[in-house]
């Protein structure tokens, strides 16, 4: 086992580079589940090739955990079956998706739509997580999303809602610090307060990414380097959760792999500067097919 913390997203732009099996500075890769679970094409072969050398996390965008379906048909069984099949094939160290809804029975919006922070939503989502975790036979992590609107009916602060979901369901939080910053700026709350409210023990992974200032609002584009303010929030978070695996996301205007690696190196430097010589015994194992789950990586020092 190695002390292994910083990952990057696996993107098709970098396939030609990665199939050559270069030496990289990254410790693990995150793959978008839907890009591989419905295909037997070249992408899946590349994911398996990458998996030979690296731990992999699977990150979905279509679970739609918060979609309020009827009680007798609560989750998409076909989706879960296909996801489980991919999980068995890839043996990821973490399986995650988003704390959001992506559509209704009438159709899929293919976007990460924000949830009203109400008791009804809380109860429903916790029950859905229970169903999903039972179907997959493992704990999942859910990511806080960027949002451009909230709802008048919400009765919880977002961070309280996220923590309550994790506490009641036993799922992990995929803590996206860029999303915290984007939503804080858009909705006028304190990003620091949000970061401080998330208990380290519930966090299974951290995401870092860039966003775009459109003048009227911040937009979560994943098209730029991580900004200084988000690096600051990252320092604040990892001081309490130094063992959590960290991912650099870059999904639009994707640069050369070396540029992505530079961002990963910076994340590692910030981590080392922040936690100094403190033990980071957890992390992601690279040895063998089955890497340990992140539960081992979430103990506060």
């Amino acid at each position: 086992m190695r002390d292994s913390m910083i990952g990057v997203g696996l993107r098709s732009t970098h396939y030609p580079h990665l199939v050559e099996k270069p030496v990289t500075v990254v410790d693990w890769f995150e793959a978008v589940s839907e890009n591989y679970m419905d295909s037997e094409g070249r992408p899946l072969r590349i994911l398996e090739t990458v998996r030979e050398d690296y731990p992999v996390a699977l990150h979905g965008v279509s679970l739609s955990i918060a979609s309020r379906y009827s009680d007798d048909e609560p989750v998409n069984p076909s989706y879960l079956t296909r996801l489980r099949s991919l999980i068995e094939r890839i043996e990821p160290f973490l399986v995650s998706d988003h704390l959001c809804w992506t559509g209704t029975r009438e159709g899929n919006i293919h976007d990460l739509l924000p949830v009203p922070f109400t008791d009804e939503a809380l109860t429903w989502i916790v029950s859905q997580i229970d169903r999903v975790q039972s179907a997959l036979g493992r704990t999942i992590a859910l990511e806080n999303v960027s949002s451009y609107l909230t709802y008048e009916q919400s009765v919880y602060e977002e961070w309280d809602f996220v923590v309550e979901i994790a506490k009641r369901s036993g799922c992990k939080i995929l803590f996206d610090i860029n999303n915290v910053y984007v939503s804080a700026r858009n909705h006028g709350f304190s990003a620091e307060r949000y970061v401080d409210a998330i208990p380290a023990a519930h966090v299974g992974q951290i995401h870092l990414a860039g966003h775009t200032d459109l003048g009227t609002h911040l937009f979560d584009t994943h098209s730029r380097p991580v900004c200084a303010e988000v690096w600051g929030l990252y320092r604040r978070a990892i001081a309490r959760m130094p063992e959590v695996p960290v991912l650099i996301e870059w999904d639009e205007d994707i640069p050369a792999f070396e540029r992505l690696e530079a961002e990963a190196v910076h994340a590692r430097e910030v981590l080392n500067e922040t936690v100094g010589g403190r033990s980071r015994a957890g992390g992601v194992a690279a040895d063998g097919r089955a890497a340990p789950v992140c539960a081992t990586a979430t103990k506060t020092p």
């Binding site: 918060a66 979609s67 309020r68 379906y69 809804w101 559509g103 209704t104 009438e106 159709g107 919006i109 976007d111 739509l113 009203p116 109400t118 009804e120 939503a121 429903w124 949002s147 451009y148 609107l149 909230t150 709802y151 008048e152 009916q153 939503s183 700026r185 858009n186 909705h187 009227t216 609002h217 911040l218």
Partner: peptide, 29 residues
Amino acid sequence: LQALQDALARAIRAPERPDSSSLGIRPGG
């Protein structure tokens, strides 16, 4: 929750800009 999601999803998919006043939205930024 279900009524809200149905209404919002319809508003997102509508060809013409819908009336958003009944959705209880608090806009960001």
